[in-house]
Nucleic acid binder design. Structure first.
Length: 282
DNA sequence: AAGAAAAACAACCGCGCTTCA
DNA sequence: CTGAAGCGCGGTTGTTTTTCT
């Protein structure tokens, strides 16, 4: 039997997820877990492919995700890990609790990579770009360059500081140095849990997944940093019920949609966002 | 204030690996 | 042992938002 197409099925929706779809997906996953992603959209009543659902959940809806810019420490860790691992974003993400490979990858491409280039560091090799003839940077950027060291002496600017205002935060040797102690075992499990959710078992939500969720609190992920969509379901309900119970309704805790769906207008639970005319979360 | 350009973010695509019948 | 099925990963693209002229 040939391999069934994943995303070319007719009727499979693509593009941005709506709040309603998010709600359906999270509601389903919290209640049933995911035995296999392929059937999730069918059972959840979503016109999406399983792959899309997995991506949405992993990168955006997971309760243990942090949102917002990477902290200086996280950025440094990403650079360290990238120097060792290369573009193995999932491995890097595994070391940063609450961060996804996609998020880190995007952050790298949009922020860190440019910073390194400005500092005269090859973002691929993490070595100085000195070989490059004259100056790889245009005149105006040359200006911004820290006068003292083109060879990676630069550093990551503080988040929030203008990109033009580069002040060294780490030294070359720091970039190449071994990474600091791994955040936490839970953190590692967190990342790997997600990436290996299917590898481990095909039954319900993998244990590692639940541990990642429950460990999120221990790893410093605060409720206020939970992904926006989680507010759709009422933070109180989630916190009260406990993720373990929610993810494992069979255990009793949180069974029966205890996460508060319908208790209140879920959209009112989110203090800072809203939906545009297309019903997209803003 | 309006338009253009750049930046940032979210999502998709396709390949490769692992598991299982 | 072989091949299908399922999933994760990394790269790329598309869309939205922000900044600049």
């Amino acid at each position: 039997m040939g391999r069934q197409p994943c995303c070319d099925e007719v009727g499979v929706k693509k593009g941005p997820w709506t709040a309603e779809e998010d709600q359906k997906l999270v509601g389903f996953l919290l209640t049933h877990g995911h035995c296999c992603w392929r059937v999730v959209p069918k059972l959840a009543g979503l016109p999406r492919c399983g792959k899309s659902c997995r991506l949405r959940w992993t990168n955006y809806l997971r309760p243990d995700l942090k949102r917002g810019l990477l902290s200086d420490d996280e950025e440094r860790l990403v650079i360290d890990l990238h120097a060792q691992l290369g573009n193995r974003w999932s491995k890097i993400a595994a070391q940063l609790p609450g961060r996804t490979d996609n998020e880190i990858k995007n952050h790298w491409n949009t922020h860190i990579r440019k910073k390194l280039l400005r500092m005269g560091i090859d973002p691929v090799t993490h070595l100085p770009l000195q070989q490059e003839p004259p100056a790889p940077l245009p005149p105006e950027q040359e200006q911004e360059e820290e006068p003292h060291q083109p060879q990676n002496g630069g550093e990551l600017m503080q988040e929030g500081a203008g990109e033009d205002d580069i002040t060294p935060m780490i030294q070359p040797h720091e970039i190449m140095a071994p990474p600091p102690p791994r955040p936490t075992a839970a953190a590692s499990n967190c990342g790997s849990a997600v990436s290996s959710a299917s590898a481990g078992s095909a039954s319900v939500v993998s244990p590692s997944c639940s541990s990642s969720a429950s460990a999120s609190a221990a790893s410093g992920v605060e409720a206020t940093e939970w992904p926006e969509p989680m507010y759709l379901f009422g933070m109180g309900g989630i916190m009260d019920a406990g993720w373990g119970g929610l993810l494992f309704p069979s255990t009793g805790a949180g069974a029966g949609g205890g996460f508060g769906l319908g208790a209140v207008d879920p959209f009112d639970q989110y203090p800072g966002g809203g939906f545009d005319q297309d019903d997209h979360w803003m």
